[in-house]
């Protein structure tokens, strides 16, 4: 019974780790491929939120019930707090300093 449970935990943690890695990859491709600043940080923010959540949950499951898991959880909370905040601060200060999204500029041209 216990061994069977351990295998399930292992499989779930690996699925989470792979999902997280794919999110990091998508974020990286997005930063390179997206057309303007705002859509680029939108892509980058995927690594801050979804990837952090998935990767750290996977690592916590790998660590089991131990001190390392508690530390990983603390780091995950820290990253989940600071990552989106940094993205928001970046976008907000870009907007305040007059950087227009590309879509808005295009709309104006059409008008």
């Amino acid at each position: 019974m216990i061994e069977w449970l351990l295998i399930v935990v292992d499989i779930v943690s690996w699925i989470l780790l792979i999902i997280g890695s794919i999110c990091v990859l998508i974020g990286g491709i997005g930063v390179l491929r997206m057309p303007d600043f705002y859509s680029r940080i939108h892509a980058a923010s995927l690594t801050d939120t979804m990837a952090t959540l998935a990767l750290f949950s996977g690592m916590i499951l790998q660590a089991g019930f131990s001190l390392a898991a508690a530390k990983l959880f603390a780091i995950m909370l820290f990253l989940l707090l600071t990552g989106p905040t940094a993205t928001y601060a970046l976008a907000n200060s870009a907007l305040l300093s007059g950087h227009k999204p590309k879509a808005a500029v295009l709309e104006k041209k059409v008008e």
Partner: peptide, 16 residues
């Protein structure tokens, strides 16, 4: 002053 969210999050983080 215009950045409410970083301010709130920062206030939470400084003691930690």
């Amino acid at each position: 002053r215009h950045h409410l969210i970083p301010q709130v999050v920062g206030r939470i983080l400084v003691p930690f």
